[in-house]
Simulated scan of single mutants.
Amino acid sequence: MSWKCHAAIGAFVFMMLPSAAEADDAQVWLGANARGPIAGRVELGVETIERFGRDDEGGLYESENSAMIGFRFEHSTLAAGYVRDIVYRGGGAAIEQRARQDFSVDHIAAIGPLAIGARLRVEERWRDGSSGTGVRIRPFVRLTLPVAGKLNLLASHESFVNLGGGAGQRGGYDRARNFMGFGVPLTKRVGVEIGYLNQWTRGARTVGAAAFTLGWRW
């Protein structure tokens, strides 16, 4: 492995360390997604993410489900869809609905065997009990490095930037989400990712979570 690959992964790990050291909320995030063509270059993608283990709730505290329709180019995808996010608290549930738009690039750059992918996500949000529309942008970058056979080392960073204060959100840089782990195909069309996810949120505790994602591409 070249020194440039070591430097890229090392820089990402160094960026994660301060917030990871402060994360004191042991959670588990489980995800599953499926994606594939439905007509020519038009694709359908569905995803669910279930979050467990918030200290004051225990068990399942958030369920996020989405469906996206996208158009596949040679190395990128433009997609739009709908997200329904349910947060459970105090015996009740608050629902947030989102319109989501994504532009993703599979390999925006490479350093030797290290592949760099990126995504720009925009969301319009409507939340129970809050007025107005909240708009936020979520730039995302992902590093993929083959380490042994079909096993890949994965690292990613996502920023959350709120534009304005609709739907109860605070304007400005609000959240940073970092992940490091491993990905491996189980079959030709099914793969799994396992690792550690660290999330810093402005004005709240940093969260650490074991993250497991099962993906299927038809």
Rank of each mutant, 00 (worst) to 15 (best):
D55G: 11
W126P: 02
A80Q: 01
V141A: 13
G40C: 07
L197R: 09
E123K: 08
A32Y: 07
V141E: 08
L197D: 12
A209S: 14
G45A: 13
R189Y: 07
A118F: 07
G59F: 03
G134T: 06
I137P: 04
D55F: 07
M16L: 07
Y82N: 06
F140H: 14
T213Y: 01
R125C: 01
L151F: 04
E123W: 01
I137L: 11
G168Q: 03
M68G: 02
S130P: 01
K4E: 15
E47C: 00
T133R: 15
F71S: 07
E74V: 08
D85E: 14
A39L: 14
G91E: 02
R100F: 00
T133D: 00
A115K: 14
S104Y: 06
A110F: 07
Y173F: 15
F71R: 14
A148W: 09
F179C: 05
N162V: 03
A26M: 12
S2T: 06
R127V: 10
F212A: 13
M180I: 14
W200T: 05
E64R: 15
R54H: 07
G165M: 00
V13H: 13
Q27I: 00
E193V: 05
E64G: 00
I69Q: 03
V135T: 15
V184N: 10
N198Q: 07
W200M: 08
S66W: 08
S66D: 08
E57V: 15
N152Y: 04
G70F: 03
R72Y: 03
G129N: 06
R41I: 02
S130Y: 14
V46Q: 10
W3Q: 15
I49G: 05
A11D: 11
R51G: 06
P113M: 05
D24T: 12
G172P: 12
G36C: 09
E62A: 11
R205H: 09
A109D: 08
D25R: 09
G59W: 03
G168Y: 01
G90R: 10
R138I: 00
E43L: 11
L151E: 05
F73D: 07
A211E: 11
R98H: 02
I38V: 15
V28M: 08
I49C: 12
V105M: 09
L153W: 06
Q169L: 12
N33M: 08
F103C: 08
H75M: 07
M68L: 14
R35L: 05
R84A: 13
T206Y: 05
A99N: 04
P18M: 00
Y88D: 09
A99M: 11
V135G: 01
D56A: 08
P37T: 02
G31P: 06
G168N: 05
F140A: 10
R41T: 12
I137N: 04
A26L: 11
L154D: 09
H107N: 15
V105A: 10
I108S: 09
V141F: 09
A8N: 08
A176L: 13
L153I: 00
S63I: 00
R51L: 04
H157G: 13
G171D: 11
G92P: 04
V13A: 07
T48M: 12
G81W: 01
P146S: 04
E64I: 14
I111E: 14
M68H: 05
G81H: 02
E47G: 10
T206L: 01
T144N: 14
V122H: 12
V147Q: 03
A210L: 15
